[in-house]
Design a protein around this nucleic acid. Structure first.
Lengths: 213, 213
DNA sequence: CAACGGCTGGCAGTTTGCTGCCACTCGCGG
DNA sequence: CCGCGAGTGGCAGCAAACTGCCAGCCGTTG
């Protein structure tokens, strides 16, 4: 049988939901996902619990910079506690969802305030996308290892970002946070790395982009 | 006659438009406005040309940082060319609209993604708000003077912001823009001032906030 | 109880950024 | 044509940030 519409582009979360939302409940083998923001999470995780049907193995990769947001970090932990495998990546990849290695959804760019998504069912293409996902999966670190790395930074990040956004000098901010200057600068360096920034200007733009200021 | 509802709070641009949009066409003496973003401009400048009826004197104060956006700068120039008096302020004030000194609209904070507006018709309160507007008006600089100040920065700002966002050192960015290091740093200092930032982290966050990166 | 690992904080050297000063250049106006 | 004003660029001094090194401390483990 000739299969039609193996590659379909939809615009906006509503259209995506209408087109492919129901398929989430039919997944049997695995759901694998790369998430960059809460925004797309909501798009691919519709109302009604996903795990309510027979539990399906899930793998999810979160963006490291997103994990600076406490609600994200909490969400990732909750997923891991509910049996999903969660990893954290420092790399930037377009958001991707794989269902049973039969269907892939890739997020595109935002145009006129609307994000487009490509829904793929072509077997060869889905296999290719799945292999790329595997590379990203292997390159990412496990949630527990990531949490250990972030143990010192995590509780301080909001206050450090506030201090930076207030324009405070490192010495002033260190005193306000009850840290030595060296340790404050250590934390700032870790924050910069988590944001993927090499300058403080970049860090400010990234933090704003992520809703951290 | 006892006037009711002299102070009303509405939530969202649609509700504001329904409540007060028609009044813009009835203004006869003056429309005065402080704008912080394109967002609120659209709210208080509904479809259908404002000046289509008898031309009403208009005074508008734009936020200096917003003027870094070429579309804003162009818009301000177009208003001035159409007879409005335009000034630029470095200060941050909540967005305000005054109609004939009889009605005032003040923008509030965004809560749950929805901005609230306070519509005021109480004569005493409107007079008070109008007097505050006059203070802001007098403290602002005329558009022409502002444009002269921005003459060197204006054409370079997009590329400087790109260079900063790329994490380039000042020396690297200066060479890329064909400027000396001293001049590049002069332009960066002007950009920081226009953004109202005292640190590069702040500048990055502000630039992102304004849609400049 | 001792050893080890990891974190902190002080110090220091280096890098990058910030701004004042001044000589020079160029364009404009009288 | 000359004088003046404004901008540029080089230099320099200072401030702020970045990161390595090392001693000390604390908690954990054997």
């Amino acid at each position: 049988m000739h299969q039609v519409d193996q590659i379909v582009v939809v615009r906006g979360e509503r259209e995506l939901h209408e087109r492919a939302g129901h398929l989430f409940g039919t997944a049997r083998e695995e759901i694998a996902c790369i998430a960059n923001s809460l925004f797309t999470w909501q798009a691919t995780h519709p109302s009604g619990p996903l795990g309510a049907s027979a539990p399906v193995p899930k793998r999810k990769v979160f963006r490291r910079s997103a994990m600076l947001d406490p609600s994200w970090a909490q969400h990732a932990r909750a997923m891991a506690d509910n049996g999903a495998e969660v990893r954290i990546t420092s790399h930037e990849a377009n958001e991707t969802v794989l269902l049973d290695r039969r269907l892939a959804i890739l997020a595109g760019d935002v145009v006129d305030g609307v994000r487009s998504f490509t829904v793929v069912t072509s077997p060869d293409l889905v296999r290719g996308i799945a292999s790329l996902f595997e590379v990203a999966w292997r390159a990412a670190v496990e949630l527990d290892a990531h949490d250990r790395q972030m143990a010192e930074l995590r509780p301080l990040a909001p206050r450090i970002i506030s201090a930076l956004n207030a324009g405070w000098k490192d010495e002033t901010a260190a005193r306000a946070l009850g840290l030595s200057l060296r340790t404050y600068r250590r934390r700032v360096a870790e924050l910069m790395e988590a944001l993927g920034a090499t300058s403080r200007f970049q860090a400010g733009a990234r933090a704003k982009d992520l809703g951290l200021v």
